[in-house]
């Protein structure tokens, strides 16, 4: 609706913000302590998690409340393969993780998208996600409730030599590059033909159907891409946190990307990323406030959502547009 209508000034402001954020992430190991660097790595993965989730949520309006199942599928596949066949290259583990996530999305998507919509889709995916969670917790090969511990950071084979990612901050930079590539891929999907079609579908599904487009098939494709990239994010996080537990498949983990999307703004590509960063910042700032951290985090979330119903990015760009006093733009916004 509002995509592509940005005035050039807001676009350049947004680009500057993205560049600044990328710069902060890229230089973090140079000036921050190890704890913050570790958290930043987790946040980068969560950004990919949330943006890939938003492919479904932002473009089709469907809430998948079982997204953590894909994340866990990727993480567990990669970590398990790392143990079972350690001689294979790390990138194969990642790709396998993504593939398993995509397959799981295909399976769940075929069932859930065909049968349910709206809130029923959310609860159906929630139930299926909880099934995955329970099965992981009962599986001996996956370490049951204690998960897989001591996951090694890989040595990757470049054609000119090998690169040991377990040394220093190397895996962090690897994560930075990998997440950048995945975000680039998602950007391409979001702004490409599929993204445009889905956005149009959300506005007027009837008219698009009239043109003979198989609505469900496109949604399924979006769901599979969303699940696959989420699983890739999961595969990347395993060597970073070096432990994975079934908690990453639990429904409360599925709630995270929803939270990030709504907080940041689901109608914009970068909205979930902003949501993830703001939420992590909130948690980080309150980490030493023992006893009152829940009150501050909960209160801040409530205030933000009540004051900024379009999410942070949505509200900011609305604000920026108002500031430009472009009456025509405002009219467009109202009609949208």
């Amino acid at each position: 609706m509002s995509r592509g209508q940005n005035t050039s000034s807001t676009t350049s402001a947004a680009n500057a913000a993205i560049l600044a954020a990328a710069l902060v992430f890229a230089t973090l190991p140079l000036w921050a302590d190890k704890g913050l660097v570790f958290l930043a790595g987790i946040v980068m993965v969560q950004i990919v998690f949330a943006v890939s989730f938003n492919l479904m949520f932002g473009l089709t309006g469907l809430v998948s409340f079982g997204q953590a199942a894909f994340f866990a599928a990727g993480a567990y596949t990669a970590a398990w393969l790392g143990r079972a066949v350690p001689e294979l290259p790390f990138l194969i583990f990642c790709l396998a993780g993504g593939l398993v996530g995509a397959l799981l999305a295909l399976l769940i998507g075929v069932v859930a998208l065909r049968r349910a919509s709206g809130i029923y889709f959310a609860i159906l995916t929630l139930a299926l996600g909880q099934l995955v969670y329970t099965l992981i917790g009962k599986s001996d090969a996956l370490g049951r409730e204690d998960g897989l511990v001591g996951i090694k950071r890989p040595v990757i084979d470049l054609f000119v030599g090998t690169l040991d990612l377990s040394i220093g901050d190397r895996y962090y930079y690897f994560l930075l590059v990998a997440c950048g590539i995945l975000l680039g891929l998602l950007w391409w999907v979001w702004h490409g033909q599929l993204g445009r079609l889905l956005a149009a579908l959300r506005q007027d599904a009837e008219r698009i159907r009239f043109f003979g487009v198989n609505v469900r098939r496109y949604r399924e494709i979006a769901f599979i891409i969303s699940g696959g990239v989420t699983a890739l994010a999961g595969a990347l996080v395993a060597p970073w946190s070096q432990i994975i537990t079934p908690a990453i498949a639990h429904w409360s983990y599925s709630a995270l990307p929803i939270l990030f999307c709504l907080l940041g703004g689901a109608s914009r590509f970068w909205g979930p990323a902003v949501g993830a960063i703001v939420f992590a910042g909130l948690e980080y700032a309150t980490r030493t406030m023992v006893g009152v951290s829940e009150l501050i985090v909960g209160g801040a979330l409530l205030v933000v959502v009540l004051a900024m119903p379009g999410g942070i990015v949505g509200t900011l760009s609305l604000l920026a547009r108002k500031l430009t006093k472009n009456g025509k733009e405002r009219l467009n916004e109202q009609s949208a």
């Binding site: 704890g35 660097v37 908690a247 980490r287």
Partner: peptide, 18 residues
């Protein structure tokens, strides 16, 4: 605080070391 969560605990441990 590790919030009884492995990832939070790991981050906090690294922060303490830092």
């Amino acid at each position: 605080d590790d919030k009884a969560k492995p990832d939070v605990g790991t981050a906090a441990a690294r922060e303490l070391v830092g």
